[in-house]
C-alpha cells in the first residue's frame, strides 16, 4: 500500500517530470486507483514504483490510462439523452452550424450517442463534435469507433429508453466480438488530447458535455474547469454535467439557469 505522503510526493514528481497535474484530484478515489495499479503491476515498494514511473514516458502514459476512470456506456442515463432530443436539439437546430464539445470523452461512447441523436434529428450534417480527453490511448479507441459486442445489449436498451426509434444494430457492423460503428457518425468528430487541468479554451460551443469528470476534482479545480467551460460557451449555450454533478455553489452559477426538468443541464443566460 502506498502511504498518503508517498502519493503526494509522487504527484509532485509527476507534475515536475511530465507536466501532468493530478494534485487537484480528490484523494480517496485517486488513492484507490493508484493502489490498484501498484498491486496489478506487482511493485515491491514505493521506491521501485517511483523509479519506473519517472524513467519512461511510455510507462507513464500506461499509468495515466490505468488511473483515470474510463468506464462509460452509450446513452448512459437514458433520460438525459431523451432531454437532449426533446429540449436541447430543437434549440440547436436554429443555428446554421452546431459546435459541441465532449470534455473528458474517454473511449467515446457518449460522442457516438450524440452523433446518433443528431443524425436522427437531421442535424448531424451541420454539426461538429469535438471530443477531448487527457488520455491519448482512449482517444485512439474513440476514433476507431470499435466497441465490444458484449456492451451492445446494454447500449441498445439505453438507446430505446432514450427515445430511439430505429434499429440500434443498424448503426454498426458486428464483427466477431466487436461492433464497428458507421463511419458517417465519426466523420463529424474531431478528436484531440486536452487536459482540463492545464489547457485553455480552444473554441466556442453551443453545447459542452462533461459528465462524471468533475466528481474526481477538488473544489478549487472544479471551479477552474467551470470557468474554462464558461469561457468556451456561446451566449445562450448549454452545459451538461453528470447526474451527481452540479453548478450549485459555483462562481458561475448566477449566470446560468438549470433547464426545467431535473436533468443536469444548464443554459448560459447571456
Amino acid at each position: 500500500m502506498i502511504a498518503p505522503d508517498e502519493l503526494e510526493a509522487l504527484l509532485l514528481d509527476i507534475l515536475e517530470h511530465y507536466g501532468y497535474d493530478f494534485t487537484g484530484y480528490s484523494r480517496a478515489s485517486l488513492t484507490r486507483r493508484v493502489h490498484a495499479f501498484f498491486v496489478k503491476e506487482r511493485f515491491k515498494n514505493y521506491a521501485a514504483f517511483r523509479e519506473r514511473m519517472l524513467e519512461s514516458n511510455i510507462y507513464f502514459i500506461h499509468f495515466v490510462e490505468e488511473v483515470t476512470v474510463n468506464v462509460t456506456e452509450m446513452f448512459r442515463d437514458p433520460g438525459f439523452y431523451k432531454t437532449l432530443r426533446e429540449n436541447i436539439l430543437p434549440v440547436l437546430a436554429t443555428y446554421p452550424f452546431i459546435r459541441i464539445w465532449h470534455a473528458g470523452c474517454s473511449t467515446g461512447e457518449e460522442v457516438y450517442s450524440m452523433a446518433i441523436i443528431l443524425k436522427e434529428a437531421g442535424l448531424l450534417q451541420k454539426s461538429l463534435l469535438y471530443a477531448t480527453d487527457l488520455n491519448q490511448r482512449v482517444l485512439e479507441k474513440a476514433k476507431a469507433g470499435i466497441f465490444p459486442m458484449s456492451q451492445m445489449r446494454l447500449n441498445s436498451e439505453n438507446y430505446l429508453h432514450s427515445g430511439g426509434r430505429q434499429e440500434f444494430s443498424g448503426y454498426y457492423t458486428a464483427n466477431y466480438n466487436f461492433a464497428r460503428f458507421d463511419k458517417s457518425l465519426s466523420d463529424k468528430m474531431v478528436f484531440s488530447t486536452h487536459n482540463l487541468v492545464s489547457d485553455s479554451s480552444f473554441n466556442e460551443f453551443q453545447l459542452i458535455l462533461c459528465r462524471n469528470v468533475l466528481i474526481y476534482f477538488d473544489r478549487e479545480l472544479q471551479a477552474r474547469v467551470l470557468q474554462l467551460f464558461d469561457r468556451s460557451l456561446d451566449s445562450l449555450g448549454f452545459l451538461a454535467l453528470g447526474s451527481k454533478e452540479s453548478l450549485k455553489f459555483s462562481a458561475i452559477a448566477p449566470y446560468y439557469s438549470q433547464i426545467e426538468n431535473k436533468e443536469k443541464i444548464w443554459r448560459k443566460k447571456r
Binding site: 480528490s26 484523494r27 480517496a28 478515489s29 486507483r33 476512470v69 468506464v71 462524471n212 451527481k244
Partner: peptide, 17 residues
C-alpha cells in the same frame, strides 16, 4: 451507479469507475 468513498477530512466522494 456510483461508488461512495470517504476523504480524510470526513467529506464524501463519488466514483463512477
Amino acid at each position: 451507479d456510483y461508488h461512495l468513498l470517504l476523504e480524510q477530512d470526513g467529506s464524501l466522494s463519488l466514483d463512477a469507475s
